[in-house]
Write a protein that binds this DNA or RNA. Structure first.
Lengths: 181, 181
DNA sequence: TGCAAATATAGGACGAGTCATATATGACTT
DNA sequence: AAGTCATATATGACTCGTCCTATATTTGCA
């Protein structure tokens, strides 16, 4: 579901091909919080077209392979706006690392510390990545407003990584204080 | 994958039926950070048995329907310990709400505020739930050690909800300051 | 000359997860 | 007597997401 609406949302910027959608837009924004591969994006575009939310026109790109230019329809826009304005259920937490940690008693203290510190290093790298990530300069009021929402999602990613680090530090302290066995 | 190891982990407490596993253990712990329904748990038990990680024995419960008592095998324990000690890739962030927020420019300021405040209320409820959630009293050293790890996962859930609230408050402030259109 | 990268779309296979449904019985409630 | 709850297991159908592969052409680099 979310992917369909992500695609519809991107098509509100302008009509574009599946390739452009993915490489110029999706991979630079949505992919950070809703990953999807090429196969899925193309299939979803087909589903959206079958459902009348987008329509396509084949473009003859002299030289390069033909592409399909997808555009959002008015039905698609209505469906998108309805979804955006609705209150959806919060997706339940789902984190495999918590499963791993939950059974930490089955590892020795030192094994667990290795796992936790490895995890910490990865999240530190991700926080660094998100801290350095810069959004483009706006060249219109429309874009300025769009970037504001982009910044909020980026802010989330940063806060999330920072919270992870704090929590992992607390876990490391707790486990380090444990008797070794 | 994670579900298999979650089940193996629970079976290290004691051999038990699929029903007991789910209702007495899974739903009170793992389900908070790795939800799964009954169908999936039963099928995963079957897969684990086919793979030799668990073995089962049919028990005649006089009166109640027969049950299968599942026990972890030594192969299963090795596989579990290997997985627990390994460093796994961090699962990429996947949050549909960020998709919704990203296209916030398509809503009016007030529509967006309704969405954000509804979200905030839900997370406040969840934080309250996790704050009130209490782990049982330990009655052995083994259990004390287990509860320590249980507390770490609960700590995560609480920090996560608190982070969400802080972030949503920042988003609400940003959106509230926007010109209405 | 040859190879990789960028452009461009699409299908098969599979795993994970969700939903609905089927079956069976004892115990307790209305 | 009828209904619901708790106990107990299992399958079919479906969606979503991932991985792998196939196809086709231009541009640029070594």
């Amino acid at each position: 579901m979310s992917l369909s609406f992500a695609i519809l949302g991107l098509l509100t910027f302008q009509p574009m091909s599946g390739y452009t959608l993915k490489s110029r837009y999706f991979d630079r924004s949505i992919a950070h919080f809703w990953p999807a591969d090429q196969a899925q994006i193309y299939r979803t575009l087909q589903q959206l077209e079958a459902g009348g939310a987008v329509e396509s026109e084949v473009v003859d790109n002299s030289g390069r392979p033909n592409s399909k230019l997808y555009a959002i329809t008015s039905a698609g826009r209505e469906s998108l706006e309805g979804w955006l304005a609705a209150t959806h259920k919060i997706a339940p937490l789902r984190d495999a690392f918590l499963v791993q940690l939950y059974f930490g008693r089955l590892l020795s203290r030192d094994q667990m510390l290795v796992v936790l510190q490895g995890r910490r290093a990865e999240h530190a790298r991700q926080l660094d990545y998100f801290r350095k990530l810069q959004l483009p300069e706006p060249d219109s009021d429309q874009m300025r407003r769009q970037l504001l929402f982009g910044e909020m999602t980026l802010d989330f990613a940063r806060r999330n990584e920072a919270m992870m680090l704090d929590w992992l530090d607390a876990c490391i302290a707790t486990v380090a204080a444990l008797s070794d066995d």
